[in-house]
C-alpha cells in the first residue's frame, strides 16, 4: 500500500483536475454570451422591432415579422401542448396511479422528451404538411406542441405527486367529487410547480429550429395567415447565417442575442418561481 502522503497527493491531483474541469465547463456559458453581446448588441435598435426582414444587399431592416411569427407560433404551440400535457400528467399522477398502462406511458413520455426534434419535424411534415399541401404556421405550431407535451407531462406528474395525500383525503372527506378535489385542491397546491413546467416548455420551444425548417419554412415578408409559411426567428437566423450578405449576418447575431436572452431569462425565472415555492 502506498504511503499516506502519496495517497494524499494523488487525491489532491485528481481534485485539482475536477476543479479545472469545472472552470473550463463554466467558461463556455460566458464565452457564448460574450460573443452574442459583442456581435449582436451593435445591431440592436428600434428598427429591429419595427421593420421587416430586408432583402439581401440592403443596409436597413429589422426582424419584426420574424419576432411576430415566433411569438405567435410559441403561443399556439404552448396553447395546444400545455393543456394536453397537464391533463396527461394528471392522469399519470391521479386517476391512473395504479393502472398498468401508467408506467408504459411514463416511459414513452420520457423517451419523447429527449427524442431528436428533427424527427418531430419529419413527423409533422408527413402528418400535416403533406395532407394540407402547404407549409404553414399551423404545422409549425403543432410541431412545437408535440415538443411541449412531454415536458409538461413530466413536470405536472412530478409536481402533483409532491402534493401530500392528506390534502386529497381531507377534500374527499367533505364529499367533493374526484375532479373537484384535483382542480380545486391538488392543482392549487401544485400551482407554482405547474407554472414552472409550462415556463420551461416555453423556453424549450422558443429557440427550436429543426422542427420548423420544413413545417413552416419561413417568410421574407409580413404574414399573419396561419395557413401560410410564416417568418420566425430561428429559421430566419438559419437562413441568414447560410448567406454571405453582411447585413444579414448582423441581423442574425441580433436575432440570436434576442432569442438567447429571452430563453435564458425564462429559464432563470422558472427556477426562481419553482424555488420560491420550496421556501414556503
Amino acid at each position: 500500500m502506498p504511503s499516506y502522503s502519496a495517497r494524499q497527493r494523488k487525491s489532491t491531483i485528481v481534485m485539482a483536475l475536477c476543479l479545472m474541469a469545472t472552470l473550463i465547463g463554466v467558461v463556455w456559458l460566458f464565452l457564448i454570451l460574450f460573443s452574442l453581446l459583442i456581435n449582436g448588441l451593435p445591431g440592436l435598435s428600434l428598427a429591429t422591432f419595427t421593420e421587416m426582414t430586408p432583402p439581401p444587399g440592403s443596409h436597413a431592416g429589422g426582424l419584426l415579422n420574424a419576432i411576430y411569427g415566433s411569438v405567435v407560433m410559441t403561443i399556439f404551440g404552448v396553447g395546444i401542448g400545455a393543456p394536453i400535457g397537464v391533463l396527461a400528467g394528471t392522469y399519470l399522477a391521479e386517476y391512473g396511479r395504479h393502472s398498468k398502462v401508467t408506467p408504459v406511458i411514463r416511459f414513452i413520455n420520457d423517451i419523447l422528451l429527449s427524442a431528436p426534434s428533427i424527427i418531430i419535424g419529419l413527423f409533422i411534415y408527413g402528418a400535416v404538411v403533406v395532407p394540407m399541401r402547404s407549409f404553414s404556421a399551423v404545422a409549425g405550431s403543432i410541431a412545437l406542441a408535440v415538443i411541449v407535451i412531454p415536458v409538461v407531462v413530466r413536470t405536472t406528474e412530478d409536481m402533483l405527486l409532491l402534493v401530500p395525500n392528506t390534502l386529497r383525503e381531507a377534500a374527499s372527506a367533505l364529499g367533493l367529487p374526484r375532479s373537484y378535489v384535483i382542480r380545486k385542491v391538488t392543482y392549487r397546491a401544485a400551482r407554482a410547480g405547474l407554472i414552472t413546467g409550462i415556463l420551461l416548455a416555453v423556453a424549450r420551444v422558443g429557440g427550436e429550429t429543426a422542427p420548423l425548417l420544413f413545417t413552416v419554412l419561413s417568410n421574407q415578408f409580413w404574414s399573419a395567415n396561419l395557413l401560410k409559411p410564416m417568418a420566425n426567428l430561428p429559421v430566419t437566423i438559419n437562413n441568414f447565417i447560410n448567406n454571405p450578405d453582411a447585413n444579414w449576418k448582423h441581423l442574425a447575431w441580433t436575432g440570436a442575442l434576442l432569442i438567447t436572452v429571452a430563453v435564458l431569462s425564462l429559464n432563470i425565472s422558472a427556477r426562481f418561481f419553482g424555488a420560491s415555492k420550496d421556501g414556503q
Partner: peptide
C-alpha cells in the same frame, strides 16, 4: 450549477452559429 445548467437552455441554433 446554474452556469452549467443554463448551457442546456441555450438553443442549439445558437451553438451552431457560435
Amino acid at each position: 450549477r446554474l452556469a452549467i445548467e443554463l448551457l442546456a437552455g441555450i438553443p442549439s441554433i445558437i451553438y451552431g452559429m457560435w
